[in-house]
Simulated scan of single mutants.
Amino acid sequence: MKQLITLSKKLLQSEGILYLIFGGLTTLVYMVTRLLLSAFAIDAGLSATIANIISVLFAFITNDTIVFRQERKGWLYRLGKFVLARLATALIDIALAYLLVTRYPNLIGQFVNNDYHLVNLIEMLFSQVLIILLNYVFSKVFVFKNTAN
């Protein structure tokens, strides 16, 4: 049992593990926010926009304070870079959806009998894995460079 506790503590100090945990929580914040707003009959587009804003802010705060342990100084500058990085990966996500699902669905479709829903699902899974990796790299290299330790 003692070894399990030691391993758990070590894992919770790992930047990569913390990034995945808070990434999952960010997704949960997005989904709960969007569902709550939808329950109040707010337009789907507006609900998605507000949920995105709240989840990006949540992601920034947790990445800044817990994952990458930044000093308080310069947080506004980091927030701007973080938002730009997230916009860049959102554009990549949109471009991949357009290219692999709308424009050239046969690239994936040839492997799944051109089933549109499977093409969309495969592209989405591929895209999300890529986006998670890119968000981590952008955060590590571009946004959160100076740690407070």
Rank of each mutant, 00 (worst) to 15 (best):
A88F: 10
K10G: 04
V143K: 01
S14F: 15
R78M: 07
L84S: 05
A148D: 13
Y98G: 06
K10C: 04
T26Y: 05
K9D: 03
L20D: 03
L125G: 05
A39T: 14
I53S: 12
A44M: 10
Q70H: 14
N63L: 00
F111I: 02
V137L: 05
F111Q: 01
G109R: 08
T26S: 07
T49M: 14
I61Q: 03
V29N: 03
L7P: 01
E71I: 07
L84A: 12
I54A: 07
Y104Q: 13
K2S: 13
Y136R: 02
S55M: 07
V32W: 13
V112L: 00
S139D: 00
T102E: 03
Q3W: 14
F58W: 14
M31N: 12
A39G: 14
A59R: 00
I42S: 02
L130A: 07
L25K: 07
T62V: 11
D115P: 11
A44Q: 09
I92M: 06
P105L: 06
S14N: 15
K10N: 02
A51W: 01
F22A: 00
E15N: 12
A48M: 02
F138L: 11
M124P: 10
V67F: 09
Y116W: 08
L133P: 07
N113I: 07
F82I: 04
L76S: 10
I21M: 07
E123V: 01
F144H: 01
A90C: 14
L25E: 01
T26R: 06
S139C: 01
A44T: 05
T6C: 00
I94T: 15
I5F: 14
P105Y: 09
I92P: 02
Y30H: 07
L91A: 00
G16E: 08
Y77D: 03
